[in-house]
Amino acid sequence: MAVRIVVLGAGYSGLLAAKLVAKRTGAEVTLVNAGERFVERVRLHQLASGQPMRDLPIADLLAGTRIQLVVDRVTGLDPGRREVRLAVGEPIGYDLLVYALGSRADLGAVPGAAEHAYTVAGNDDAARLRDRLRESRVVAVAGGGLTGLEAATELAETYPELTVRLVTAGEFGGALSDRGRRHLRSTFARLGIEVRDRVRISEVRADGLVLDGGEQVAADTVVWTTGFQVSPVAREAGLAVEDSGRLVVDETLRSVSHPEVYGIGDAAAARRAGGQELRMACATGIPAAVAASKAIADRLAGRTPKPLEFRFFNQCISLGRRDGLIQFVRADDSPVEAVLTGRLAALYKETVVRSTILAARRPGIVAAVA
């Protein structure tokens, strides 16, 4: 009887892992996802600004494989019975499980965020923001990470009549080199984006933000990009997780508490040699999917799997459709002075984004170079 492998989540890491496991083993592979379509999460700020997105049915991306697609929401796990519980369908049994349920916006950290803020963390979320912007005049983007920078510049470029404000607790562009920060400041100035950094948000209201100390930042629309949280499924099932809820995995992406479970993408706390935890990103999730599929294939074949080998190379930031910033970094993700900016950087970022779909369609190409 064939080994049953179930992959939870068809995001960048889950879809790739499912296809590679099916390719490398004789296992019976089932992919479970809450929706029928692949979500290009790295483009959701574009969707929010009103740009059309490609329609990518997951069934089409699985064409020619032996993978069974189940469209349903995962509600829980029973590790003892090795079953996945679903919202609608019957439980699915597994011999090996790949846990790739991703992440969603954390709207619970600040009062009022869940009631009043919009996000770009999911397809429906970005579509709601797009519709809201049609009647907006002032937008406040909360969060100065990569998602916040991309959302603010995309909205300001697409809707020049909007007043766009970015509010962040950290230093504006603090993760960048001096050259990177200079380009970021000049781009925001060119687009007319107002920046408030080193301030903390204490409340989100219908009419904007309230900062610590009581100062108000007026906005009729708030875009929340600060912080992500993972599904509680792993914690509730008794799997070893970090305080954040991310699955604790070893150097081969296998759960430290349940060896029949592998964790990849945002849902798992994968680490580089030396202990550095990989940040939530498509750039880390795809290599983790490749490594986990190799480890699974090796163990099924009686071979000793190799540990994850990963180094950071760059941070790719789109600043609208005609500008970008590629910040080159050391292996530990710390910035060096070298950057790429302008239209060439925008083209670079677009090429990277397109390559993620190439990976989904032709995973063997990614596996060959990873």
Rank of each mutant, 00 (worst) to 15 (best):
E242Q: 10
S177V: 12
R37F: 12
R41S: 04
R85L: 15
G342H: 11
A370S: 13
E277H: 07
G238R: 07
A288G: 10
T356A: 09
Q46W: 06
A291R: 05
R43Y: 13
E194I: 11
V138D: 12
C282A: 12
R205K: 06
K306S: 14
L166C: 08
A367H: 09
T65L: 01
D266L: 02
S244M: 07
A283D: 04
M53H: 00
S231E: 10
E236L: 13
G122P: 11
A367K: 03
G263K: 02
G245D: 07
A234Y: 12
A22S: 12
A142Q: 03
V195G: 01
R128I: 04
R271A: 14
A338S: 15
R181H: 09
T304A: 15
T163D: 14
E236Y: 11
R41D: 01
R361M: 13
A281Q: 08
V366D: 03
Y348M: 06
A113Y: 11
D55W: 12
A48F: 10
L325H: 01
S334E: 15
A18C: 13
L62A: 00
L69R: 03
L97R: 08
G192L: 13
A105T: 09
R246K: 13
P52D: 02
D298W: 00
L129G: 02
A169Q: 13
L149T: 15
L31A: 00
L209P: 01
V249Y: 01
G108C: 02
V42Q: 04
G26W: 06
G26T: 06
R54K: 13
A288N: 04
G35S: 14
S186Y: 10
D207M: 01
A269D: 06
G89Y: 13
K294T: 12
G174W: 01
G173I: 00
G102K: 02
S293R: 02
L344S: 10
V223C: 01
Q315Y: 11
E40A: 10
K294W: 07
